[in-house]
Nucleic acid binder design. Structure first.
Lengths: 195, 195
DNA sequence: CGTAAGTGGAATCTCGGATTCCGGTTAGCG
DNA sequence: CGCTAACCGGAATCCGAGATTCCACTTACG
């Protein structure tokens, strides 16, 4: 492969990652091409079709996610802070969007692949361990689980176009609200049946 | 208007309301027609175009929403319980979806109309009053506002197709989680900078 | 009954992308 | 330096999803 071609390939994956995290998994090829500063044709010379490109982005994301999670877990003594860190990291501007989408939405092109599935499973497992630890440490409600966390991450970071602008602009604000609701003791029994 | 025609008109609006609350504001005309048990042509005999039909649904919803809010406010002595009730009502299965979408997303066809705008403004105002009261009563955090509540209602009930299945299946669970995070005292300062 | 009001739903039209194609460019070997 | 296999850009083409139109066929009801 010619040197310039390799350079372009990198630009493409990078651009795809950005665009996808801004516009969701359905971002059009042309948007990605423009961002990468190349023509659509070039995308197709490297990837057989859109699915393949998206899959590449998926792999990139799941690795990054796994990394961020492990870092947070290592840097924090208590599980709650680690979770907090990780969630904040995901919500940071220009962040993962897809990462979480991948983790839940059955985006066939991405999820139906050996390597991704393995990676994802490991990530979920470690995330789950962290949640259980937080619960054991008494800092997190026992009636919520990793799945809840994952779903919410997904909701707030994956379909930016469908979110009200203020939410898309600062998903972190809402994710923190949710974390506050997940703290130990935050649960409220619904108020008794009406007056 | 012939009696059978009037009957159909009712079926149409009703069907539209249902379908929209299940599939979002972009539900296709054909889906609505099928649900109403009529042909697409019939929809177009009553409404000049899709926007007009959606607008009708919008009016129906905003009225229903306003009603539910007022009822909750009347039946509960404390503002917090009223809010809780109202949010639960909106999240109930088969509920409003659109109602909230309308309230925020600039869905031109719907929002850009005198009557709807007026209705919506009144609703927001009363909702806001309720929130402030809850804050005054010391049951709700002061750093969140009606807008947050509205946005969340919107996120969790408007684009069912884009939500992870478990969330779409029980948005109430997640909305309640958020409410828990909005209770007075739920705010957590982020854990201090890392270990 | 007669006929204007109504009806279903296939056919048509649009539009937003994905994918293909090819004439024009280069990297980089000899 | 030339040469040519790799590369490129992006216009042209292809498609599926839905909105909207149209009309031969029914039906309510005066």
């Amino acid at each position: 492969m010619r040197a310039d071609a390799r350079r372009n390939l990198d630009k493409i994956v990078e651009a795809a990652a950005e665009v996808v995290s801004e516009r969701g998994v359905n971002a059009p090829m042309e948007a990605i091409a423009k961002r990468a500063g190349v023509g659509v044709g070039t995308l197709y010379r490297r990837f057989p079709d859109r699915d393949a490109l998206i899959a590449a982005v998926g792999d990139l994301y799941i690795h990054t996610m796994a990394n961020a999670l492990d870092t947070a877990a290592r840097d924090r003594a208590d599980a709650w802070s680690a979770i907090w860190d990780f969630v904040s990291w995901v919500a940071a501007p220009g962040r993962a969007a897809l990462a979480t989408a991948l983790a839940v939405v059955p985006e066939e092109a991405i999820v139906d692949r050996e390597e991704f599935a393995r990676m994802r499973a490991g990530w979920v497992e470690r995330f789950d361990a962290l949640v259980r630890r937080a619960q054991a440490e008494g800092s997190m409600r026992a009636d919520v689980g990793v799945e809840d966390l994952i779903h919410l991450l997904n909701v707030f970071t994956c379909h930016p176009d469908d979110l009200p602008a203020p939410v898309a602009a600062d998903p972190g604000r809402y994710l923190r609200l949710m974390l506050d609701g997940m703290k130990a003791g935050a649960a409220t029994p619904p108020p008794d049946a009406g007056a």
